[in-house]
């Protein structure tokens, strides 16, 4: 009766249907509660072996995945490798074959090259979960952002979400765009023209050139982290000017016709893309996003492992 819910891998939200995205969000709901218990553990993935393969530095995403895995009772190994597989000397395909030879069940991969998760998924039998690949997608971040929006607004359909900042280099932006538009939200992107992909409107989003426009238009702002190296690459003149022109500030938000929900995938550059007053203010859901991250990742791991959406039945109850 359990249909293959998601397929073998989760490489992005672009290939998923609205039903599949809703399935993950709905499956995440009961997992939220697990993290609130004194004993934060269910046996859903007992005996499963998961490798967290991080070719890029990550604190939040790696820890979030690790908690999700441990709270599902999986056995986990963390492999961190600085730099690309090329500089390491071993190719990604060799890494994949070696992992496969150790008879693992799942790989969570973070990699600096777009397409790396799909590349791995096509070459090993284990489930592969993309924890961010280059500038392509970061599907679990997109899902946790959408879950947080759904918590606050009750539904996604008809919601106006503006994604602000460096869209060009952002995998978070792409996953949010796919996930939100599939669920019927209206999505706008806002940022300096140097950091907007030329064809972004063809993805079904509105382009708003000024942050003031986004604040007037949106129900929620998802404020992206500005990578500081963009300045050196000549995309922007200075952090100061970025804050002056595109910063999400209390003064700008005061002019909004309604209270805006503020999301940020972290880590924040306070005083650059977002002011501290906003980040710590009453409409910020930045920490609830992090909490939801664990639940969403538990849901993804659980579903890819073949678990039934009704996991309390499958695992013999949570009590």
């Amino acid at each position: 009766m359990a249909a293959p819910a998601l397929g073998k891998d989760l490489v992005g939200l672009e290939p998923l249907s609205a039903e599949q995205i809703r399935l993950i969000l709905d499956t995440a709901e009961p997992f939220k509660e697990v993290s609130e218990r004194p004993i934060k553990k269910v046996p859903a993935l007992r005996g499963k072996t998961i490798v967290n393969l991080f070719f890029e530095a990550s604190t939040r995403t790696r820890i979030s995945f690790e908690f999700a895995e441990k709270r599902l009772s999986a056995d986990t190994v963390n492999v961190a490798s600085t730099g690309s597989s090329v500089s390491k000397g071993e190719t990604l395909v060799d890494t994949a074959r070696n992992l496969e030879a150790m008879r693992i069940d799942m790989v969570v991969i973070r990699h600096g090259s777009s397409g790396a998760a799909q590349f791995l998924g096509h070459r090993i039998r284990s489930n592969v979960i993309n924890a961010g690949d280059g500038k392509h997608e970061h599907p679990t971040q997109g899902l946790l952002d959408i879950l947080t929006l759904r918590d606050r607004f009750g539904k996604i359909e008809g919601l106006k979400v503006a994604i602000c900042g460096d869209i060009l280099h952002s995998r978070v932006a792409r996953s949010n765009i796919w996930g939100l538009t599939k669920l019927g939200a209206e999505v706008a992107v806002c940022g300096p023209a140097t950091l907007l992909p030329r064809n972004v409107h063809e993805l079904g989003v509105t382009v708003l050139p000024r942050i003031e426009d986004a604040i007037q238009w949106a129900d929620a702002l998802n404020v992206l982290r500005l990578q500081l190296e963009r300045m050196h690459a000549g995309f922007l003149p200075s952090l100061r000017e970025y804050n002056r022109v595109f910063g999400v500030t209390t003064e700008r938000l005061a002019k909004a016709p309604k209270d805006l929900l503020i999301l940020h995938p972290g880590p924040m550059n306070r005083g650059v893309e977002i002011d501290s007053d906003v980040a710590d203010g009453p409409h910020s859901v930045i920490l609830p996003q992090v909490t939801n991250g664990v639940a969403v990742r538990m849901a993804v791991l659980y579903l890819l492992a073949g678990g039934s959406p009704d996991w309390t039945q499958q695992t013999g109850g949570v009590d």
Binding site: E14, S114, K135
Partner: peptide
């Protein structure tokens, strides 16, 4: 090539 496909795949394009 810099275009819709490069935007979707997250690859740097050459205009």
């Amino acid at each position: 090539h810099e275009g819709l496909v490069s935007t979707r795949l997250g690859l740097k394009g050459v205009p």
